[in-house]
């Protein structure tokens, strides 16, 4: 096991999450079971108060988790100096078998915790608190997810092995690799580019008509196609190297940390799209604010990502 300051930091905060998350979990279960706004019993009164403790804890966990996730990537990048063969976070993350799964799992959790806050916000806007039971049930499930994530964190850091040779991103993100990503390289990469822009255009149209189900599904598709097209096509222009397909290297200093901007805009755009759409369905009302934020950030993402190949073409007069 590596005992670097970064790892200790992440584990210490995991411990805090675990501690408070557990408290919140037990209260949530109780609230989900006994909540009754019409009752005037002391129990209900107590639950009303405790619901705020849970909300505060979840807010805390989410707000710390967001930057901590970036820090996690940062740490993985740094560990790549120590682990033989790894050139960036990709190699480190994939040095354990569940690495990439863990990575996507962490992102999924960010969506879940974020959505909880949105649900909480809407719940507290209405005197009848229509979502109270659901939000605490959602948290109870989210807590299980959190537990698994903390377990994975610990397992990940303990199984990192300095002396083990790992593949670098060049090997992981190529058609020859046996990793789960490799199938995407066997298809003509331009297809992904066409699909990406097609989805993007549909997404923009969907913001005009604001049909919640359409916005929701397009946003979900958009996340995936955005990441795939980033790996197979747009990334190569960031690196200016047709064979460099790594989604992690762009988070490093050599590329001005552009990866953080790219991923954060993608996250905000799709997060507001998804949660806005879900809330529109639940509230039976079009959540314009969420759609607008979503639209703005999705457009920013598309602009940044398109700028790379276009400037490359202008400079060199040819595509990679």
């Amino acid at each position: 096991m590596l005992l670097t300051p970064e790892i200790i930091t992440i584990l210490a905060l995991d411990f805090i999450f675990l501690f408070f998350g557990t408290i919140a979990f037990f209260i949530s279960i109780r609230i989900a079971r006994y909540w009754d706004l019409n009752s005037t019993t002391p129990l209900q009164y107590k639950l009303e108060k405790q619901s705020f403790l849970v909300a505060t804890i979840i807010k805390y966990i989410f707000v710390v988790k967001l930057p901590l996730f970036l820090f996690f990537i940062f740490t993985a990048n740094k560990l790549s100096n120590v682990i033989v063969g790894a050139m960036c976070a990709a190699g480190v993350v994939n040095s354990v078998s569940f690495g990439s799964a863990m990575f996507f799992y962490k992102i999924l959790n960010l969506y879940i915790f974020g959505f909880w806050l949105v649900l909480n916000h809407f719940d507290l806007k209405n005197e009848n608190q229509p979502y109270t039971r659901y939000k605490f049930l959602l948290y109870a499930i989210g807590f299980i997810f959190l537990l698994v994530e903390i377990y994975l964190d610990i397992d990940f850091f303990t199984s990192l092995d300095v002396s083990k040779l790992v593949s670098c991103c060049g090997a992981l993100f190529s058609a020859a690799s046996t990793s789960s990503f490799s199938f995407i390289f066997t298809v003509n990469k331009l297809y992904f580019v066409y699909i990406f822009y097609a989805i993007f255009v549909l997404l923009m149209i969907s913001y005009i008509f604001k049909n919640a189900f359409v916005v929701l599904s397009l946003n979900l598709i958009y996340v995936f196609i955005a990441i795939i097209s980033l790996i197979v096509f747009f990334g190569t222009y960031i690196y200016q190297l047709p064979t460099h397909h790594c989604p992690f290297c762009m988070l490093q200093k050599n590329y001005d940390y552009i990866g953080y901007v790219v991923y954060i805009t993608l996250y905000i755009g799709t997060f507001f799209g998804i949660s806005g759409a879900i809330m529109s369905i639940l509230e039976k009302k079009k959540e314009k604010f969420y759609y607008n934020v979503s639209a703005i950030f999705n457009v920013i993402y598309a602009i940044i990502i398109s700028a790379y190949p276009i400037t490359y073409y202008i400079k060199h007069g040819a595509w990679l």
Partner: peptide, 8 residues
């Protein structure tokens, strides 16, 4: 008002 939750 007697039915409102604490926050409200």
């Amino acid at each position: 008002v007697s039915k409102l939750a604490d926050n409200f």
